[in-house]
Simulated scan of single mutants.
Amino acid sequence: MRYDEEHKAKTRQRIIEEAAKRFRRDGVNATSVQTLMKALKLTHGGFYGHFTSKDELIDEALRYCLLEIGAVTPVSLTGDRPLPEFIQRYLSTVHRDEPARGCIFPTVSAELGQRGAAHPATDQALLARLGQLGEHLPDSQDAVLVLSTLVGALVLSRGVADPKLSDHILDAARSALLELLEAKSSGAQC
């Protein structure tokens, strides 16, 4: 049975969305094409009617994650106190506990680097986020520092078994970043 182009496009989008969720929650290596397609009640062979390889899917899922990240952390930094609000939300227990809906960097950055298969989409995503942060900071190095601290703290908080230690990691990173912003805003407007 042949499907029309609209059906094919919707199916492709479903695959991308499910992959994005699984890549954030489980990682790229732990998400096999077979498992992914089975979860969508599609055939493993049908995957190749939509993508030439898993690498193509990785690129598409990373791009999608950039658009969909607002589920837990805001995509744009707007409001009265955009950067402090972003930091509060990023280093929240909700974001820690729901990786499938959050930022992709904590889950896939190290994994893609270890595979020797970093993707241009990762660079694009990182540069876009640094650009957003940089709009609210006086120095571009500060954007790198803030993002690195956010991602690192989230990774560590997810990687420990003790809930109190996990909360402490989030609290300490949040406090340090907010203090940094306060110090920077005293010297220059954020």
Rank of each mutant, 00 (worst) to 15 (best):
H7A: 14
K8G: 01
R12K: 13
I16E: 09
E17K: 07
E18L: 14
A19I: 12
A20F: 01
A20K: 01
D26G: 05
D26V: 05
T31D: 05
L36N: 07
A39G: 12
A39T: 08
K41M: 15
L42I: 02
G45Q: 12
F47M: 08
F47K: 01
F51H: 04
T52D: 08
S53D: 01
D55T: 01
L57G: 01
D59P: 00
A61E: 15
L66Y: 05
L66N: 14
P74S: 15
S76R: 14
F86Q: 05
R89H: 03
Y90N: 14
S92V: 12
S92K: 06
T93H: 08
V94N: 04
D97K: 10
E98L: 14
E98F: 08
R101F: 13
G102T: 13
I104M: 12
P106E: 13
E111F: 00
Q114K: 11
A118Y: 02
A121W: 08
A121Q: 09
L126N: 00
L127A: 14
A128Q: 15
R129N: 08
R129L: 14
L130G: 08
L130C: 13
G131S: 13
L133H: 00
D139A: 12
D139K: 04
V144K: 04
L145T: 03
V146P: 03
S148N: 07
T149I: 12
L150Y: 05
S157W: 02
D162I: 01
D162M: 02
L165S: 03
H168E: 12
H168F: 03
H168L: 15
L170H: 02
A173H: 06
S175M: 05
S186N: 04
